[in-house]
């Protein structure tokens, strides 16, 4: 009986969003009299930071300060359509819709600014600090706030934009099965070291190192948050969390946190991650999806590390102490028989 160590890895290709039926998201943007922009979405921020990311994308495209963007999300009764927050799709789909809406709103903003400055809209540029001026002539300038006032109370115009991102369904070749199933793919590889106690069957994840390729990161701190959180979820699914016996039993699962085991802070190893950036052609400013794949790599990597440590072939999750001790019994029985 001893503590033995093992190493395992897993690699993931992760498609961003779905394609069947188109997987659309729409966005509406309008300017307020105060010169702020409201981005209205039905998309849901689960805590991954969607509102932050959409505000960044809107500010960048409109050419106005981040602070002047208000993102309204998650009213599916009144908001423009969104297929939903899943499949790591919202940065990509909602982000693209916001780019389109912001382009249209920017055009409307520059038209009003052009009237104020007596210049053609094509000759205008934004400085990102809330001002619009004639290209190369910084003194011929109006503030975004002045444009808002003029549009609302002078010209009687709306400054607004619509965006609809739709990846059309891709028909499948009946002969080969070939189709274009996704807009872009993110990639990852995770390497894990574990220590297994062969007496108790307890597993400790000692180290987890990952490399992710997620297109252009719109917000690197939020990407890191997804990766670290996902690593924890991976440990949970690999070693602890189960609703077994599950279907078809109807009174199976643990129904409270005392019985639904999950890792705590003390079960978290140091998580190291490197992020590579290969901007996606179809992405908003090159972005791909990162949310869901971050759980997918750690799980098989941990199971592989356990198999490597014990020289067994466990293929189920979670790998509880019972699963490990049974696998060791079986191995001993085979060696003996």
């Amino acid at each position: 009986m001893a503590k033995v160590r093992g190493t395992g890895f897993a690699a993931v290709n992760y498609p961003t969003g779905m394609h069947l039926g188109g997987d659309p998201t729409q966005s509406l943007i309008h300017m307020t009299p105060a010169g702020d922009f409201v981005v209205t979405m039905a998309s849901v921020d689960l805590g991954q930071g969607l509102r932050t990311v959409l505000a960044q994308i809107a500010a960048e495209t409109l050419g106005v300060p981040y602070e002047s963007i208000v993102v309204e999300t998650a009213d599916t009764d009144t908001g423009p359509h969104c297929t939903g927050t899943f499949a790591s799709r919202t940065t990509h789909r909602a982000g693209n819709a916001v780019v389109m809406a912001a382009q249209e709103a920017r055009k409307a903003m520059l038209e009003v600014a052009g009237e104020l400055l007596e210049a053609s809209p094509e000759d205008l540029e934004t400085d990102g600090d809330g001002n619009i001026h004639i290209k190369g002539v910084a003194e011929r300038s109006v503030s975004v706030g002045e444009v808002a006032g003029a549009a609302h109370f002078g010209y009687g115009k709306t400054i607004a934009g619509r965006g609809a991102y739709l990846k059309p369904p891709s028909p499948m070749d009946p002969e080969t099965g070939e189709c274009d199933p996704d807009s872009t793919q993110a990639h990852a590889c995770t390497i894990v070291e574990v220590e297994v106690d062969t007496e108790t069957g307890m597993v400790e994840v000692l180290d987890m190192k990952s490399v992710y390729e997620v297109g252009q990161q719109v917000n690197p701190d939020l990407v890191k948050g997804q990766i670290v959180g996902g690593s924890w979820m991976g440990i949970g699914h690999a070693l602890y969390e189960t609703t077994a016996p599950g279907y078809p039993a109807i009174d199976p699962a643990p129904v409270d946190f005392q019985n639904y085991l999950q890792p705590g802070a003390s079960e978290m190893p140091e998580v190291t991650c490197e992020v590579l950036e290969y901007p996606a052609e179809s992405g908003p400013y090159g972005g791909k999806g990162v949310g869901e794949m971050v759980t997918n790599g750690p799980i098989p990597a941990i199971v592989n590390a356990i198999n490597n440590a014990l020289d067994v072939r466990i293929t189920q999750i979670p790998v509880t102490p019972e699963v490990i001790l049974r696998a060791l019994d079986e191995k001993r029985a085979q060696a003996g028989g």
Binding site: G47, W232, F257, Q262, A265, M268
Partner: peptide
């Protein structure tokens, strides 16, 4: 913090 669960951040 051992009595407090978080489902998102991974605690780190």
């Amino acid at each position: 913090l051992s009595g407090n669960l978080c489902r998102c951040t991974g605690f780190a």
